[in-house]
Design a protein around this nucleic acid. Structure first.
Lengths: 341, 341
DNA sequence: AGCGCTGTCGTCAGCGATAACGACAGCGCT
DNA sequence: AGCGCTGTCGTTATCGCTGACGACAGCGCT
């Protein structure tokens, strides 16, 4: 079927080992034979079988990313970073998507990855509900090194995430600085750790400013624009005097913007709106949206970089290393939707 | 390092082959030993090494997707479909992203995939410029079966794509049916096959309706909202009497909508706007956007399904099979941005 | 009793590659 | 001439697993 080392060896009139030396650029051979072997390789179109090499080397040179929500902006960007760095470091990358973020065939997926002997795993599934329940040290001991993304830091786990709370604080403080006083909050689903963090940031910023976080100004949504629209409607009914809204995602903000327009309110004159994520579209919402930018590609790159370090350390010293958590600071992006009235 | 078949065999007091039989559910063994072996497997937490199995079976059970633009809505959705079907069919999936759609380390990527002995490849890189130039039969003979997405059908290649031209025709005809007569076009980059198809659809629909496709009403953009905004400005300067615009992507449409608002025009009363892609946001643009929906997840699923068929056929009869091209019909989604004035 | 058959299980070789070691020619040296 | 050394290359074993085949006990049968 495929051309093998032996085939090349036979053609070049040398032993298999010699061909192996040429392929792997190990010295110890004369220029003459190297060229002869190389010619045979080219002639036959020989490509080494990495599976066989992995078997004897005890290294698969593969990583895996387990993700959810790839068809949303955030997760897919993160995966781009993961793939990029993996490639740069010489790993091939397996992609595994979960059907739902909150349950799923975790066992099946992990078993498969172990069987494929991946050297490390990036866990890019958002922390929602108890979907981190499977993590315990006994389990982790049987698994390759794992780096967890978008998750609460905890001892014994290597994590990379963005400081959602900090981002939320910055937006809210910005709204306050623009003279807003009745600032509503449309939250993401509270089962999500990231959503809770953003909500907490809103609350913290208000308290720091001596403003009272009014519970009637808080409405839940599910990240989507539809739910954002519904929430905004509720918000406007409950508190017609509201003068700003922090939506916990750009999509939610988009829905909220639509309802604000329909209600005859001007944005930002009557009500300011801010989002979170900085999707490419947000700069072209009507009006352009103030939001929070996350360096998601960096998150992916750093995650793989850390994973690589752990793998290398493990191979050399055989002792288990877990890096500390890495936390990136998001950046406030100010646009028209929050301009001073 | 890892627990091996031998370890289990030793513990259970049987031969390695017997353990292998248990793992693979091959008959020929008594219930007693099966249970004893299974107990040993559980106790040691044994997981078979798929690399070794692949080596002897001559099957890697892996597929690969080569893609670009995963952080955009369309490509990422397609990948979701690809992953889903791959998983269902028992394949593991390698993810390879190209840095740019139009050049790139194609050789490096393909070499790597061959070395990993993937059984098939999904080529999910859009056709732009001459980036399909590497395809020739001599080359393909040395490669595993490939299914090409979003590409012009051509003999000898298995392709799965959406009929972009048809979609564009439908939008344009819809705009005409709404009473519009001066219908502008903001195209995607003409190096892209899909962009050319959409442009051609606009032209064809106008001609069919007996309207003259006016070249001054055609402006180019690069898919992004920024470029859409620029193009819309140009369009309004050139033809202030324009009464509709077909933007070749939702992002372009978004930019166009913003400029329309800024120019004091009402959408859809003064100018109708339509897009292409049906991104989740488009239903919440201001106003909600008329657009074209593509079944991208289906595209991914079908692609893998076809690939699987080819692989199976090849394994059984050893003769090379290439399926015909599959073309999906997109669907027009009518929303407020194109309502009758 | 002796036959063959079936059910169970083990032995052996080999998938494609590499590490460790060994073999051998040619060299310079005393 | 005889020594060891270096450079170059081959031999062997092994990674973890499975297919082909063989071995053997226990069974029913004539």
């Amino acid at each position: 079927m495929h051309v093998t080392l032996q085939d090349v060896a036979k053609l070049a009139g040398v032993s298999a080992k010699t061909v192996s030396r040429v392929v792997n650029n190990q010295g110890e051979l004369s220029e003459a034979t190297r060229q002869r072997v190389q010619a045979a390789i080219d002639q036959l179109g020989y490509r080494p079988n990495i599976l066989a090499r992995s078997l004897v080397n005890q290294r698969s040179n593969t990583l895996a990313v387990v993700a959810w929500g790839i068809d949303y902006y955030g997760p897919s960007r993160t995966v781009v970073g993961i793939e990029k760095r993996s490639d740069e470091l010489g790993y091939s990358l397996f992609l595994n998507l979960m059907a739902h973020p909150d349950n799923g065939d975790i066992d099946r997926i992990l078993d498969n990855l172990v069987e494929r002997r991946v050297e490390g795993i990036i866990w890019a599934v958002p922390e929602v509900g108890a979907n981190r329940g499977w993590i315990d040290s006994a389990r982790l001991d049987r698994l390759p090194p794992i780096v967890f993304l978008s998750t609460q830091a905890q001892p014994g786990l290597t994590t990379v995430s963005v400081n959602n709370r900090h981002g939320a604080i910055e937006v809210t403080q910005h709204l306050i600085a623009q003279g807003r006083r009745r600032i509503g909050l449309i939250t993401g689903p509270q089962a999500w750790w990231e959503a809770r963090e953003r909500s907490a940031g809103w609350q913290e910023a208000l308290q720091r400013a001596g403003l009272n976080p009014d519970p009637t100004l808080v409405v839940g949504a599910d990240w989507s624009a539809v739910s954002g629209a519904l929430a905004m409607r509720t918000l406007l009914e409950r508190a017609p005097d509201i003068d700003a809204v922090f939506a916990c995602s750009d999509q939610i903000a988009l829905g909220a913007l639509g309802v604000a327009h329909q209600s005859g309110r001007r944005v930002p004159q009557d009500v300011a709106v801010a989002g979170f994520d900085d999707t490419p579209e947000s700069a072209f919402f009507w009006p352009p949206l103030t939001t929070v930018h996350q360096q998601l590609i960096d998150v992916g790159c750093i995650a793989v970089q850390n994973l690589h370090q752990i793998i290398e350390a493990k191979r050399k010293s055989d002792l288990e290393v877990t890096l500390e958590s890495t936390i990136l600071m998001p950046e406030l992006v100010i646009r028209e939707s929050s301009a001073r009235h």
